[in-house]
């Protein structure tokens, strides 16, 4: 497949009560990766390690094929990051913050910034620290999109953001991806964002990647089957996620083709089969 914009190999970071990794992750050009996991599963820690704000203990992080620590300034200029980094600068107005960020990024796009400020109705004279949670999120999002980056790292960008602005953000991310050679990693708890934006899903649990898959694979393989009965062979089958023997008798599987073959060989009829929604899949993934 394509060129990867991010390669993480054997990444590890230990804290007193938490360990992230060891972790491998690859993000290909043109893909939007959804990072999903419960609170405290390590999503924000991962972003901070990728941005070299936190020092890793072990492993390797390559952005655009280059070592982040050795080429920090060069590679970071092509990364747009939104993830609660600006809180220490709460005493500055948004205008002053923009001036500071523009100084860091030679590719700062003032036109794009002004366009987005207007689109999201932001008052640039307001002090950042005085802004509401949602407005802070929007301001960070705007900054991440204003320096022609090739990779966006977004840590719950729409948390606390009003519905209309959420829609605008989705549109702006789709527009960002139209260029084709860019990628996004987005941590989210929002099912709509996963459905409408993401191509691949990575599930984090207790600092480790427990699942990583293409969204359409799930649609194709996971299914709920309405059957005449559940044969014994399926009771402990590794591809059966759940079954109920009460009417309607149902089997939930992560490999519909395989289970259909088993059912056929046992002369069990399938009256109906249905794909699962992403929300349902997550519930099963996190329960099992």
């Amino acid at each position: 497949m394509g060129i990867s914009l991010l390669d993480v190999i054997g990444l590890e970071k230990k804290f007193q009560n938490f360990q992230l990794g060891p972790m491998d992750l690859k993000v290909e050009q043109g893909m939007v990766v959804g990072l999903v996991g419960a609170n405290g599963s390590g999503k924000s820690t991962l972003f901070k390690l990728l941005m070299n704000i936190l020092r890793k203990d072990n492993g390797q992080i390559l952005l655009f094929g280059k070592n982040v620590e050795k080429n920090e300034i060069e590679v970071k200029q092509k990364v747009g990051f939104a993830g609660d980094l600006l809180d220490p600068y709460g005493h500055l107005t948004i205008e002053e913050l923009a001036g500071m960020i523009a100084y860091w990024y030679p590719t700062w796009n003032k036109e794009q910034f002004n366009h987005l400020i207007k689109k999201y109705n932001i008052n640039t004279e307001e002090k950042f620290g005085k802004c509401s949670k949602g407005t802070k999120k929007k301001v960070e999002f705007i900054f991440s999109l204003s320096h022609d980056s090739a990779l966006l790292l977004l840590d719950e960008p729409t948390a606390g953001v009003d519905i209309v602005s959420q829609r605008k953000m989705k549109e702006d991310l789709i527009l960002f991806m139209e260029e084709g050679e860019r990628s996004i990693i987005i941590a989210t708890h929002n099912a709509d964002e996963i459905n409408q934006l993401c191509d691949d899903i990575v599930v984090l649990q207790a600092g480790k990647i427990i699942y990583s898959f293409n969204k359409d694979e799930v649609y194709e393989n996971w299914a709920k089957l309405w059957v005449s009965r559940v044969p014994d062979e399926l009771a402990n089958h590794p591809n059966v996620i759940l079954f109920s023997t009460n009417t309607p008798v149902q089997v939930v599987t992560n490999n519909a083709h395989k289970i259909e073959r088993v059912l056929q060989s046992k002369q069990v009829s399938i009256s109906h089969s249905q794909r699962l929604t992403m929300e349902e899949v997550f519930e099963y993934l996190i329960e099992t």
Binding site: K170, L197, D199, N214, K215, D216, Y219, M278
Partner: peptide, 8 residues
Amino acid sequence: SDLGCSVI
């Protein structure tokens, strides 16, 4: 995005 599937 409209269909809820991936670009692949």
